[in-house]
């Protein structure tokens, strides 16, 4: 399984803060995104280029390879402080 998390405006837009997805056929972040949008067509427009990704709590890219058990988080650019 891959554990997927969403934060802030993306979380609200998708109406979901986390979900688990079978890791079958998921090799990298990009293929995870394809699987997510196939499952939830309404997710299609949400993942624009400004959305950032962290894999196992480290900032990452859409080319990052994934393995079962990974935690993948998607979120907009940060605005703390």
């Amino acid at each position: 399984m891959i554990n997927v998390l969403f934060f802030a405006s993306l979380r609200e837009q998708l109406g979901s803060e986390k979900l688990e997805l079978s890791s079958d056929g998921i090799t990298d972040v990009q293929s995870l995104l394809s699987a997510l949008t196939k499952l939830h067509p309404n997710y299609n427009n949400a993942f624009n280029q400004s959305i950032l990704v962290a894999v196992n709590q480290e900032m990452s890219t859409r080319e990052q390879t994934l393995k079962p058990g990974d935690e993948v988080a998607f979120f907009p650019p940060v605005t703390g402080g």
Partner: peptide
């Protein structure tokens, strides 16, 4: 530390306005 906290740390602010509107801030 403040400069990097602003652009690196995973916090997000949502503003609540006097007119009741709520707005996620842009970086």
């Amino acid at each position: 530390i403040m400069d990097f906290l602003k652009v690196k740390a995973t916090f997000w602010k949502k503003e609540v306005h006097a007119n009741g509107q709520k707005l996620w801030l842009d970086a």
